[in-house]
Amino acid sequence: MRRLVVFFLIASVITMISLARAQPPGRPDFGQRDGGRKPDASSFIKRMMTFDANKDGQLSKAEITDERLLPLFERADENHDGIVTKEELTAIYAKELTPNRGMFGDLFGPGGPGGAGGHGPPPHGRPVIGEVMPQHVKDILRLSTAQRKKIDALQKLVDEKLEQILTDEQNQQLTEMRHRGPGGPGGPDGEPGRFGPPPDGPDGKRRRPLDDEDRPRRPPE
């Protein structure tokens, strides 16, 4: 009888561990985002394996319940047997992500270009010069709508001031750096104009009348 009790105790511990470890695809690896761990093939495989309903360590097409990932499944299924193994997932990860230095090479290499004020490389996306707080950081911090609005307002202020401080030429250079990276090819991180409106923009000094041929674009709201 005592053995039975011990068995139940062990069983309940195992149950609790499996509960704690189980992670539905709907909210994948928050820990990873929060902890800022380096994304690699294993975290990708782990996310994909949340679909492994029968726990056989591989994926069948029927197990991919999120149909948006079927194209990825089909690309991964190199031998077209309808089964994707961990090896095939590793292979597609290497094929589609590794050659792209924009993804990780820039992010985790030492002294990545344009490190935002020495905060170190982020786990997610290249730092944007002059950006107060990147989107993923806002997400991690779970900012409220009100806080996001305040950050947006702060960003606008920073953009405007920055543009005033720099000369036209410097502004131009900065824009180029944002697109190419200061020291070589890197991925561009946004559209030009990110650092605020041009002189004839809505908040600029040389405001020009907008409404000549400016078709139905007056503020209706």
């Binding site: 509960l19 189980a22 539905p24 709907g26 999120d66 990932l69 674009r217 503020p219």
Partner: peptide
Amino acid sequence: GLFAEQLFETPALTEGPFYPDKMPL
């Protein structure tokens, strides 16, 4: 979520600078 058919959330990306500042009619 353990066995339910859960979907991955569409990732968030930056809004960029060009959300219309003046709405079209």
